[in-house]
Write a protein that binds this DNA or RNA. Structure first.
Lengths: 181, 181, 181, 181
DNA sequence: TATGAATGAGTATTCATTCAT
DNA sequence: GATGAATGAATACTCATTCAT
């Protein structure tokens, strides 16, 4: 995906991003020192600052790509034309997160507790789509139903990411049955 | 709760606890330095360590009383004899948290992301009570219903504590109606 | 040894002295905190300062009694009338130190490296007595002989106190034979 | 010993080592703070830890070179083929220590009182060489003679380093005469 | 681009000491 | 005499960041 001549540099830049993501997600941003990132990435500490200016710049860079990943996941739902599909796919959503992308999501959920990074509007498009879907299906309070399902989605995601969710499939079926999708 | 003659000492100890709770909850444990706690509590930094040995000891001390507060809230539900009351009171629960106790709860929810402090079993008694209630009310999958309601409870709490929950009452009514309680 | 009415107070004061000696001797003065002394002595930290003003006062108090013990040991030699006895008793000296008094001696030897506490004149009376003895016995250089024997005495003591002296008796006999005493 | 291009870095590292040695030797390891070392070395405190990880690492680094210096001094004696030379050179040894290296030796002698750094086996090669020499010269108890001479060596060194040894030359001649070397 | 030496401010914690009781 | 709460200065060590190369 990169021009040949840049492979070397990008290699290191990406190693930094990868290591930082892993550490930020699992040990926390504050608890992760730039020196640890550098060590794990196998680069000099100075390089982090050359590429990202400062620690916050590195974090922002990671958050950006995390949001891209989130939007990719949402995009599929947003373009559905069928109400039931929208709901079904929303229920499926948290169970579709790849293990390889857990760290992105962990970081996102953790950061929601930092005022600076908590952006409740991020879910807006999905909420609206769900509201539309529940309206289509003649639910009495479509927007509250949407809110409720999003909440369920967030709780499930949280539990999956924290690693304490044993009966995932059973629960998914239960939800689908509940919403008749 | 204290003998008159001890007011002086407890005063400072409690100021430390109060300041630390506020800072831990709002800025994060790692982001809060003991020197900042001391400054805000109006005591010398050393006193923190005389009273709590170390920062973790201080945190644990706070967590303990946070858990007591949580158990107090749960206790009322656990002793209900009526199934519908159990569900109704569970729905009410997150809306009952006093503003003055937000910090306790914020801290608890934030810490769930730290492996060391994440104890999913804490909710077990409530889950079991809810399972019993849904069984009484002839729900098809009582334990999954309980799990779902707890998830909703956690999401609502999270949103309330993060300060982005505008339609609290409306949503509460919606839920109660959904569960016919 | 104390008046009945003072037993309690002296008890605590002596516990402090005992604990401090042990810690000073084995872990070093600097490495021993007053709080550790208090803990081991089973008294409050404040009491140390009431009895000895400060840490240095405590140390000086210990050093004083250590010097008394040293002088007691030397006294017997100094009053000998027979030259050979003087030498023999000097050789015996380091092997006579009671285990129970090791800490006193350890502390003395360690402190010799602190300029403030290094008092080379402490040995003067013994050196003079030995010089006299070697003169009596017609040694060519009595004062240098005295100096040499004192050095040997200090080395032996050091090794005994440090716990690495396996062939004590053999070495003692060897020395006595060397000096024909 | 350094490449021109590295002078800058090594300069600071060596200044740290030099300052630390001086302070450790004269004021004691415990009594010397890293901040004092940094101040005297004219570097930032952090640099100490970048170069040596921690205070103990710095101490170990100094001890290592101290031991090298010691081994260098011993090496000459160990390779002697003539028994008398061995003894003569051992007697000369403490008087050969350069003023510029006093601190290395002071530190070594002081540390002998710290269990962790007291390694009585360090002298073993010299003791064996001396035992051989006394055997060659038909002394009755060669190994005890060796032990005794080493003790004398240690006492002399101690006194020289502590600065209370006025009649050095006289004493050296006295010893050489005693051993007929 | 990349390194690694260097820094200054900060971190948790310890220490000797004071003082009200 | 004795306690223990309280302090301020110090301690070893870490951190994000800079900069010469």
């Amino acid at each position: 995906m990169q021009v040949i001549t840049h492979i070397y540099m990008t290699d290191k830049k990406e190693k930094i991003l990868k290591s930082a993501l892993e550490l930020f997600a699992n040990e926390g941003v504050n608890a992760t020192s730039t020196s640890k990132i550098a060590k794990i990435a196998g680069v000099s500490e100075g390089l982090i600052f050359r590429h990202f200016n400062n620690k916050k710049g590195l974090l922002n860079s990671i958050i950006e790509s995390a949001e891209e990943k989130a939007n990719d996941l949402f995009a599929d739902i947003l373009k559905q034309k069928d109400a039931k599909s929208v709901i079904k796919k929303t229920i499926d959503l948290p169970f579709l997160i790849k293990k390889s992308e857990y760290d992105y999501w962990k970081l996102q959920f953790k950061l929601k507790w930092e005022e600076e990074y908590n952006n409740p509007k991020k879910m807006q498009p999905l909420i609206e789509k769900l509201t539309w879907a529940f309206l289509e299906l003649n639910y009495e309070k479509p927007s509250l139903e949407a809110q409720h399902l999003i909440q369920t989605f967030e709780s499930i995601s949280t539990e999956i990411l924290k690693g304490n969710f044993s009966n995932q499939n059973e629960f998914k079926q239960f939800l689908k049955h509940k919403y008749s999708v």
